[in-house]
């Protein structure tokens, strides 16, 4: 028996490895499902699913819809769309969530179009709440508030889909907290009846290359980030030295990356990685909304900037007006003699 009206999460995997964002969505999905008093389900297209299913359940899923096929080892649009939409048609969830990754952003709109469902991209928050139609003609209970930055990050929009189901959203990686897994949790496994056809596999993957990012910004407790104010690739060395000393990693604003001071793997912000470390140093970063969107949840923010009016000071806990080339050595000296 499949539970209808569930909250469903698409589980993104590549060659058996689950994307972090999928587990983050299970954790948030669990909270939404509890709030709505419904089941949390997952949909898993994969070559082999046993381990993936176990992790989904441990993180909070009640039901896992599974399609196993050797041809589902790597993501391709058509077969994945067929499997996921078959699962949605069968289970009729009220909400379906995807990671806002390359895969999620390729797949979710395809499915939304097929189901004629509303889809909101790149959400940074999800809530449940009521909605009154403009003019007050109609009331809707317990809709999914899909909250996202728009207009280049200058506004935050709350989007709802009052009439259509499922309510669909892609969610940025790193914005939802992952809660610990409970290996004792129990859940059901349900096969997806999706007849994959040969014509679903007309796209051939000739070559594939994946490398792990050179820096793990998300896992770091301390991030030392530099912006345009750092001025050069050479000057970034000071940030690396400081980060190394305090056991942190180096981040960067988009303009530092675009200026070629540092690699894109280090980019924090709306188009880079979202971080929430214990301590964030913003060095020579003016604090454009796009950058702030990726770091403002940091527990403590120290901003160093020569311009006392820089927007970064608006969200910082500690502000130092000064040249980072003078201030960082002072910080290092003070840390050494602590």
């Amino acid at each position: 028996m499949i539970s209808k009206n569930s909250v469903m999460v698409f589980i993104e995997q590549d060659d058996g490895h689950i994307a972090d964002v999928s587990l983050e969505l299970i954790c948030r999905g669990r909270e939404l499902a509890d709030r709505l008093n419904v089941t949390l389900s997952a949909v898993v297209p994969a070559q082999r699913s046993q381990e993936i299913v176990a992790r989904c359940i441990a993180h909070g899923c009640d039901e896992v819809h599974v399609a196993e096929d050797a041809r589902l080892k790597h993501y391709r649009t058509l077969p994945f769309a067929r499997v996921v939409s078959a699962a949605i048609r069968k289970a009729q969830p009220q909400i379906v969530l995807f990671g806002a990754t390359v895969v999620g952003r390729d797949l979710a709109p395809r499915i939304a179009s097929e189901l004629k469902a509303g889809l909101t991209a790149d959400c940074t928050d999800l809530q449940i709440g009521n909605h009154t139609e403009a003019g007050g003609a109609k009331e809707y209970k317990d809709l999914l508030y899909q909250i996202r930055p728009a207009f280049g990050g200058n506004i935050i929009a709350t989007i709802v889909c009052p009439e259509t189901r499922p309510q669909m959203a892609t969610v940025r990686e790193g914005v939802m907290k992952m809660t610990p897994a409970d290996p004792k949790r129990q859940g059901k496994v349900l096969p997806i009846e999706a007849a994959l056809r040969d014509e679903d596999f007309v796209l051939e993957i000739l070559h594939r290359e994946r490398k792990d990012k050179s820096v793990n910004l998300k896992a770091a407790n301390i991030v030392v980030s530099g912006g345009a104010g750092v001025g050069s690739k050479e000057s970034f060395k000071l940030l690396f030295d400081f980060a190394h000393m305090v056991g942190g990693v180096v981040g960067a604003s988009r303009s530092a990356v675009d200026s070629g001071f540092i690699g894109k793997d280090h980019q924090v912000g709306q188009t880079g990685t979202t971080v929430r470390p214990k301590l964030y140093f913003a060095c020579g970063i003016s604090g454009a909304v796009q950058h702030r969107a990726g770091m403002q949840e940091s527990a403590k923010i120290v901003a160093i900037n020569t311009d006392k009016d820089a927007p970064i000071f608006g969200i910082a806990h500690y502000g130092i007006v000064g040249d980072l080339n003078r201030v960082i050595p002072m910080l290092m000296k003070a840390y050494k003699s602590k």
């Binding site: 004629k116 929009a157 709350t158 709802v160 889909c161 923010i301 000071f313 608006g314 007006v321």
Partner: peptide, 23 residues
């Protein structure tokens, strides 16, 4: 269009308890 904009908020810098540190 199934999606409707419920609310738009401008990003306003949230006033934090900023402490200025002498450089």
């Amino acid at each position: 269009s199934p999606t409707k904009v419920k609310k738009i908020e401008s990003i306003v810098l949230k006033g934090s308890d900023l402490a200025w540190i002498e450089p």
